[in-house]
């Protein structure tokens, strides 16, 4: 915040002239990028459809009411599948994530090369959305719950392992040192010194991810990987809008219940 000397005496300005210029330049570039990006999108848009959208929305909205409650009897099985995809996927992910996390944490990794491999596993698992994982796995295993479960598992490995290895790196090292000083082997140091410290973190991560996975598994059916998403895409394709609204209601309540459960369980653990 410089004072600038002028013939009329010093003037206070928030920023120096050069800084002001740089800021203007930055905004100019940002605007140019945004304009260009907008052009990129609008060139590929058929504006007639967009103009027609409010009417369409009113039309579809009208057709969705009231939800077809009798359809619920056919939704129990997909809901059960969705729950299983999320839960088993989380369990699988945790089993894989534990060794990966110990290999990735600075203080427990057996070798820097092993650490690099573990980090690579984490990054690639995290970069690919579960829907894309499912897309690939449906090609290999065929449509169904199995592909969805594995997709959720593969996507969650990176997430869980990342949080877990950060937890491992944050432990109190003197507790481990104390165990080491008794003449304990490395495996014993792990079990007595490190595991008790990270166990609550581990449980918290599991529940947290389970909650996310419930949301994610509701949509896997869109690519054929089982669960309630399968019904959703079927109903949309056949334009059965009252079924669609019923499914959306079910998804909504599943998500709310899972959020409530995970909050309760996390409260009990920590």
């Amino acid at each position: 915040m410089p004072l600038i000397e002028t013939p009329d005496g010093p003037v206070w300005k928030r920023r120096a002239t050069k800084e002001t210029l740089i800021r203007w330049f930055f905004w100019l570039i940002a605007l140019a990028v945004i304009a260009y990006a907008w052009k990129g999108i609008s060139d590929k848009t058929i504006w007639f459809f967009v103009q027609d959208a409010p009417r369409q929305a009113a039309d579809i909205g009208g057709r969705m009411i009231p939800p077809k409650f009798s359809y619920m009897s056919r939704l129990w099985v997909p809901v059960w599948d969705t729950l299983n995809i999320a839960t088993l996927g989380t369990v699988i992910a945790l089993f894989i994530a534990v060794p990966v996390a110990f290999a990735a944490a600075h203080n427990t990794t057996p070798h820097p090369i092993v650490r690099t491999i573990a980090i690579f596993i984490i990054v690639s698992s995290r970069s690919v959305n579960s829907l894309i994982w499912a897309l690939m796995l449906v090609f290999i295993f065929g449509p169904g719950v199995l592909a969805g479960t594995i997709a959720i598992g593969l996507r969650s490995v990176g997430f869980c392992a990342k949080l877990l290895y950060e937890g491992i790196e944050e432990i109190d090292h003197t507790q481990v040192e104390a165990i080491e000083a008794t003449g304990a082997s490395r495996a014993q140091q792990m079990v007595f010194g490190i595991v008790p410290q990270v166990l609550p973190t581990f449980a918290g991560i599991g529940v947290f991810r389970w909650d996310i996975n419930i949301r994610e598994s509701t949509i896997l059916g869109l690519v054929g990987a089982g669960g309630i998403g399968l019904e959703l895409s079927g109903s949309i394709n056949t334009l059965a809008w009252t079924q669609v609204s019923m499914i959306l209601l079910v998804i909504l309540s599943t998500v709310i219940v899972s959020e409530w459960v995970s909050a309760k369980v996390r409260g009990a653990i920590i």
Partner: peptide, 11 residues
């Protein structure tokens, strides 16, 4: 839903 309303594409 957006695809239903606005048609296929980035919009």
């Amino acid at each position: 839903f957006a695809v239903k309303l606005f048609g296929f594409g980035p919009f």
